[in-house]
Structure formats: structure tokens, C-alpha cells
Design a protein around this nucleic acid. Structure first.
Length: 202
DNA sequence: AGGACGATTAACT
DNA sequence: GTTAATCGTCCTG
């Protein structure tokens, strides 16, 4: 159980998003390890780049708001937000402090604590963590997980070192669910996933 | 004070 | 393929 160091996160979001594939996200739930291997991610903003799909760039003319403040802070912290009136999304802050960068975790291959995952809602194993809101439910991620330091040994959620996925197994495409986001950000291929993995959201 | 909208999901036709 | 669910955040006035 070796946590990824802050230097892993302190890089451009696109690189972190790609390198997170194959790493294990773990959340402690009632004293038990619950988690899985990351199979799908999306990058939001890179340092000094515009990205009108990114909460940090879209709101308040690119300045921090109450919700997005953590995104402007140091890398290796969680950014968890609530959307559609019912869903939590888990992200990790990347890049340099002062810029809003983050990676959204969109899907996991469930590996540990599947009974705990099923406790929130019984589903087929293939559907426990194959989407950003579903994996948050499976790992019991909510507002209490916003702004936690994943590099701090005492935090209840973290990412462990794991596989390095070979370049030819990584696929890219446009990010999902961007709605009214204008081009070019609507189509820019900042979504990453492991080719052929059955736990990818789509 | 009020309205638009959302980094989604499930349940429809 | 379409749409309801459901409410915090942000923007306008």
C-alpha cells in the first residue's frame, strides 16, 4: 500500500489523467478497504490553458469560487462536487497552485470491498463502478471527501501505485456530458480509457 | 429573489 | 431514441 506522491499529481492534468489508468483508488469505509483500479479518466484544464468545460475556468471569470477553491490549491487534494441534484463526482487536483486543474475519475474495475459496494445499491458487478456517480456511491464518497489530501497518510481516501498501462492500450476521445460547452473544448480528446476494459462507462 | 443549468443515471417509448 | 429526478451554485436584476 504505497500512496502516489504529490509529485505525481503536480503535473499537467492530461499527463496525470493518462498515468492514473491502472492505479488503485481506495476508500476506507467502516474500517474496510473499498476500491478498484482506475480504467477511465478525464482531464480538466492544464496550467495556463483555457478550458471552458472546467468549472474553474467557467465560473467567476476564471477566479476561484466557494465551490472551486480547492481546484486552485495544491495538487494531490480531492475535489468532490454535487450535481444534477443527486450525484457526487470525485476529482483529483493536479498541476500548479493558482490554476484550476483536475482529473475526473469516471470508472474503476472493482477489486476490493465489493460487498460494501453492493450495500449502497445492489447491481451486477459490471455496473458497480462504471460511471463517475456510480463509483462515488460504491466508495461512499460525498461532501465529507472534498478537500482531502490524498498524499497525507491519515486521509480516508487515496490512490496507490499500480500498473503502468502501455501506450497502445490507451484510447482517447472527447469528454462526456459537456452539454453547452463551446468548441474547441467540446470535442478536444481529453478523455482517457483502457482499450477493451469492460468497466469503462461507455 | 428568481431562474437556468448541470463533468449523471435510470427508466421509459 | 427521450425524459424525469432533484438541488446547489452561479448569474442577473
Amino acid at each position: 500500500m504505497k500512496r502516489l506522491p504529490r509529485s505525481f499529481y503536480g503535473r499537467p492534468a492530461r499527463l496525470v489523467a493518462k498515468d492514473l489508468l491502472g492505479k488503485r483508488l481506495v476508500s476506507m469505509v467502516d474500517g474496510r478497504r473499498v476500491g478498484g483500479d482506475i480504467v477511465e479518466t478525464e482531464a480538466y484544464c492544464d496550467t495556463e490553458e483555457r478550458d471552458l468545460a472546467c468549472h474553474g475556468d467557467r465560473a467567476n471569470e476564471g477566479r476561484p469560487t466557494l465551490r472551486t477553491a480547492v481546484m486552485f490549491g495544491p495538487p494531490g487534494f480531492s475535489y468532490v462536487y454535487f450535481t444534477y441534484g443527486m450525484h457526487w463526482m470525485f476529482n483529483i487536483v493536479t498541476g500548479d497552485p493558482g490554476y484550476a486543474n483536475a482529473v475526473l475519475i469516471r470508472a474503476l474495475e472493482p477489486m476490493e470491498g465489493l460487498e460494501t459496494m453492493r450495500a449502497f445499491r445492489a447491481r451486477p458487478d459490471l455496473e458497480l463502478t462504471n460511471g463517475p456517480a456510480k463509483l462515488a456511491q460504491a466508495l461512499t464518497i460525498d461532501q465529507a471527501h472534498n478537500g482531502l489530501d490524498l498524499c497525507e497518510p491519515e486521509s480516508s481516501i487515496w490512490i496507490e501505485d499500480g500498473l503502468v498501462i502501455e501506450e497502445d492500450k490507451i484510447r482517447t476521445g472527447p469528454r462526456i456530458g459537456l452539454g453547452k460547452t463551446p468548441e474547441p473544448w467540446l470535442s478536444i480528446p481529453w478523455r482517457y480509457w483502457i482499450d477493451g476494459n469492460p468497466y469503462v462507462s461507455r
